[in-house]
Amino acid sequence: MMRKKYLNWINIVLILLTILLAVIFLALSLGEINFSFSQIINILTKKEGIEYSILLNIRIPRIVLGAAVGGSLSISGLVLQGIYRNPLVEPYTLGISGGAALGVSLAIVFNIQQVFQGITLPIFGILGSVAMIIILYFISLRKQNININTVLLTGVMISFMTSSIIMFIMATTTSENLQSIVFWTMGSLEEPNIFLIKIVFFASLMGLLFIYFFAGHLNALRLGESNAKHLGIDTTTTIKILFVFASVMTGISVSVAGIIGFVGLIIPHLVRYFVGSDFRILIISSFLGGAIFLLLSDILARMIIAPNELPIGVITGIIGGVIFIIALTKSSK
């Protein structure tokens, strides 16, 4: 029964929220100093001392950023997959993340990191991703009936080119700049600027709400663009709006947290396997799933070579790469 399906959706959301809460507690408790569950409650209710400062100023912002970035990247991927009707499209494979990295690298090399103070690098990151969005837009959306393989291959080539240019910059710049670029491109959830974290968090929630408004449109697009049009959807405008929105969400996330690849690929893929292809549940579950995945990846990144930290992109990249190959072999069958 269909009505049973709605109840099922509520259960799915509750389960994911419970897992997210558990992961948040795990992320709060693990670190250079470990806290137990009761200690965390105790510290947070007392609101004083160095432990409180660790939680409030270091771990909580990191968790908020992780959840927002994970959720944003995940639904950006989901939306792009929905409008291109291809499960292999995601911000990373479309070169949007690469564009952001290139923007940031250029800002570092030209020594203009302080033009807008603390938010310079994110601004250049967004500019870089916007540039890629424009290029992709002209290649993929301006013409009608574009072949999806062309879009995907163009995206992969854009990623490849941006990383080559970044490598060129890295090879010719000073060691100080090199370090900044490497640190940034590898991706990290360590962000001292609370204002930026607030922006990312707010953008991710707005994005979630806005994209959810299009859940029905995305559902109709599953039947193909012309069928969706016949159901009363202005597909051209809808696709353009969703494309730009997904790209901007990615741009904001990547420009603050660095390149964190494959979240937008793995999470919607896994979530689709469990909840089906209805966007009304897929969007919420992918957002929560992305948040959970990135927080877990961050815990791993912090734990594996503690007290040092692995770049979080390494963790998501390895898991994501494997899933990408599995998905590719499956879809070509």
Partner: peptide, 25 residues
């Protein structure tokens, strides 16, 4: 107007979900 096109996409959804899409307008 309802239109039945020649090329039918085959999404992974149930028949009921497919038919219910007709209520979108």
């Amino acid at each position: 107007f309802a239109i039945v096109t020649q090329k039918i996409e085959t999404p992974n959804i149930t028949v009921e979900e497919y038919v219910l899409m007709g209520r979108f307008p």
